[in-house]
Amino acid sequence: MNSSQSVAGSPEPAPQPVQRGSQRFAPGEGPLPDPAGSHHERRIRSFQPRRSRVTTSQAEALLKRWPDWGIDIDGKRVLDLGEMFGGLPVVLEIGFGMGEATAQMAAADPGTGILAVDVHTPGQGNLLGLADRNGLNNVRVANGDAIILLREMLDKDVLDGCRVYFPDPWPKARHHKRRLIQPEFLSLLATRLGPGGVLHCATDWEPYAEQMLEVLSAHPDFENTRADGGFAPRPDFRPLTRFEGQGLDKGHVVHDLLFRRK
């Protein structure tokens, strides 16, 4: 968790204002543009950074809450989730968009900590603002590559679950290697999930749903929670998002998959 400290006896400098549209913050005051830098090897990215404007309210939320609730994924330290969440069971959410669904789930289940990872600065600010206004102390926002977080910054068996909702489907065949749900990712995740921990995926891209089901069903560390080996109905705890509603209005079919670590 990031924090800023002043030299004893000297006044702490006031945070510098962040202009609308800026995505750069002073160290410790907001998410860094590339937190891992050159510390770890580059790999095929499963996400596409989106460079959109940060509103004034999002920037204010980042300045206010990032020092306490924000984490840059730099790969330099192992996080103490027990201390960070006060001993709550912790679920990792990879990709949360603007954070509305994350905030709803955190409010509905205050007994579970949510470690929410994304690279979209406006969404990070929006989620922190929602958490702040609604008193959601069980949310932490991580900035950067979820693979580096899993590989370098989390202990084994530390997670109670993982949520991957509507990841980039990378629809072109030559980009399928960029899809997140691959055997290598599942093998890494399995080491960080405790026994019985559940991976919950959802997508409205049917070819990706079929690939997810195939890859997960074949992986030795996971088993389908569905006795019939198929897709699951949307659980009550996963909110119907605005994005999902728009897809349903267009005739898209949303598939949920819930697989348990053996």
Rank of each mutant, 00 (worst) to 15 (best):
G99Q: 01
D228R: 08
D132P: 10
A61M: 07
G251W: 05
D204Y: 03
Q58E: 10
E12P: 04
P220G: 01
L63S: 08
P17G: 00
I147V: 12
L32N: 08
V78P: 05
G87T: 04
R43C: 02
P167S: 02
F185A: 05
W205I: 05
V90L: 01
R179Q: 02
A107S: 11
I73E: 04
L127V: 07
L32I: 10
F185I: 07
I181Y: 06
Q48F: 12
G123M: 01
P207Y: 08
A103N: 04
S217E: 10
L257S: 14
R24D: 10
A101C: 11
A131E: 04
Q124L: 12
P239H: 07
A218Q: 15
I94G: 00
T55E: 12
S3P: 08
L136A: 06
V198F: 11
H175L: 00
V164Q: 07
T203M: 01
C201T: 14
G113M: 02
P49S: 02
P15G: 00
G197L: 00
H175S: 02
D228M: 01
R226T: 11
P13I: 09
T225N: 12
K177A: 04
A59T: 11
Q246K: 15
V90K: 03
F231R: 02
R50M: 09
R133V: 14
D157I: 14
G230M: 01
L159V: 13
R226M: 14
L257Y: 11
G9H: 10
L213Q: 06
F47W: 13
Q211A: 11
P89I: 08
S22M: 00
D236Y: 09
F85Y: 05
A61L: 05
P27A: 06
G37E: 10
N143T: 10
M1H: 09
E206P: 11
H200E: 14
G129W: 03
G86L: 06
N2K: 15
R174K: 11
C201F: 05
P167I: 07
A190T: 04
G9N: 06
F231W: 04
R226S: 13
P49W: 01
H39C: 13
S46I: 05
V7D: 15
E41I: 15
K172M: 04
P233N: 06
